[in-house]
Design a protein around this nucleic acid. Sequence first.
DNA 1: CGAGTTATTCTCACAATGAGTATAAGTACG
DNA 2: CGTACTTATACTCATTGTGAGAATAACTCG
Lengths: 323, 323
Amino acid sequence: MQDKTTLAKKQTGRSDRNQAVCADLIAVVIAVTNGEPRVLTIGQAGALPSGPFELGHRSLQSGLRAWVERQTSQPLGYIEQLYTFADRDRIGDEHVQRVISISYLGLTREEQAESSAVHGWRGWYDYFPWEDHRTGVPPILADILMPRLLAWADGAEDLNMRRDRRQRVASAFGLDDRDWNEEFVLQRYELLYEAALVAEATRGRDTGSPPPLPGRSMIADHRRILATGIARLRTKIKYRPVVFELMPPAFTLLQLQRTVEALAGRLIHKPNFRRLIEQQNLVEEVGETTAETVGRPAKLFRFRHAVLDERAVAGTKLPLSRA
Amino acid sequence: MQDKTTLAKKQTGRSDRNQAVCADLIAVVIAVTNGEPRVLTIGQAGALPSGPFELGHRSLQSGLRAWVERQTSQPLGYIEQLYTFADRDRIGDEHVQRVISISYLGLTREEQAESSAVHGWRGWYDYFPWEDHRTGVPPILADILMPRLLAWADGAEDLNMRRDRRQRVASAFGLDDRDWNEEFVLQRYELLYEAALVAEATRGRDTGSPPPLPGRSMIADHRRILATGIARLRTKIKYRPVVFELMPPAFTLLQLQRTVEALAGRLIHKPNFRRLIEQQNLVEEVGETTAETVGRPAKLFRFRHAVLDERAVAGTKLPLSRA
DNA sequence: CGAGTTATTCTCACAATGAGTATAAGTACG
DNA sequence: CGTACTTATACTCATTGTGAGAATAACTCG
């Protein structure tokens, strides 16, 4: 019955323990502007908006909203929890106190007047140049990263380890007969980290003048958190109508497609995309057309907000081309 | 540049703040025995294994493993993070100190010799009797819960609120022309909570002798966490080969099917299930057959562990019948 | 007006899926 | 020992979903 006492403690506030943990809230806030996905950052160093969870906060979510709005004055719409970390090694903290990082993914639209010195929107492919396959395989991947990754795999002492590494590289980057899977963002980042092909992997060590490595870096483990957010978003757009959080009130089907392509980092077959959106009844015509540049004017659509009620979870499927 | 100081603080351990938060690790550990899904609990009251995250723990995961093994001496295999909560109201804690609950889902096999007084396995449908649709719609749902839910929906003052409630009930419970979706476990629980149809919803209040409400209750918000775990598992078995974590080394296809049915709470078309499993190459023949009870003996299969390497994420789809 | 550009509608082959039927190989028991 | 019953396993078939490409419509530009 040691269990009864545990319960008692649980219900009377555990003042007997001094687990001085502190909890950080970290936000990955995404917007898509002109067909480019962007992430909200603060400071020069490249950091995600974040701050400690405080007593005044009503909930984790509201604490996060408060920090983001204080640091960037960007209003937040949709948010969802990403992951909670507490690894000691990655935090870059030598002190004894433990930090728990609770990360969130937020989706908005970039409507800021002018960019500020302390915060701004940065293209997410600046941080992950190997992730953009819209115009084919990025040169940086084929020319620099793949050779280095394979060298790293073959550089393992153990035979089993070599096989394992090659296996993981092949799976994550779509080698051999496999297809490129845009969802494996985190696995790819973790491999590059392991192979010391991203700057933050060698941060603690004294590597003289570090060689230039691909992709912009971020403080602490923020780039890993961003990778987690991108992976989640790329997965989620396939079964939930979250893309619309990133769209203006009215948009053409091509604009919608370009947004999805920007997120997925790959192209979509236009007629099939259109078919899927329409047969799922996700949008309705506004009644007007765009007077944009050249070509036949496109009808404007708006998101049918009713679908959020109709099928709380349903599914939005997106046809991604193979080529 | 207030941002530079923030960074500095971040990297030198934030001893300047006294955010005395404490973090709890909570485990939803699932096994399936004889076609019944079960959850690992401690104590009489119905509690999930849990304990505070401590300085000695290497990571959140290892801290969780330590607590579960200490409290239940049940070894843990597969685990994944579920969700992090910090709601004040639901914790049942009047004190100022904040508690963050980090929950995990674990999958194992029940191999305990005899049950102990302080811990044990309980059928998960004891807690959620309305979730088992393997033998049709549970009477408790049709006879008791649905009428009460509809009464609750119609009891709202505002017209919009009435419509909204009816809408949510219909969606979560598959009314009208909608299908029952076994994945909406959490939404259903939340609705029942809102409608005060689960015991823990009226816990704080002085409701004299509370009427008997369906389903066994749990301490604090543990039942909600269990609902989250069930929902996650029901979703996940459809695209990842996690069922095998719950299976013995060798099994027949029917045993595998019964396990999936137990988790999903609904029946599966046998030939289609078989086809799906085989064409995905998830299993291989052991070479023996079962000498079980009656009927033609079934071949024994084992999980092809190689698939975990081959497609780190791939997909295991399961055909759920509509009837 | 013709070339170029984007929008929009169809067609078609093929894979995936839900449902049902038929046959095989055992056990139980008169 | 043969018949009824039970479970295993193998096919069939209709329908839908999906990837890919062709055809047509409606504009702008010069």
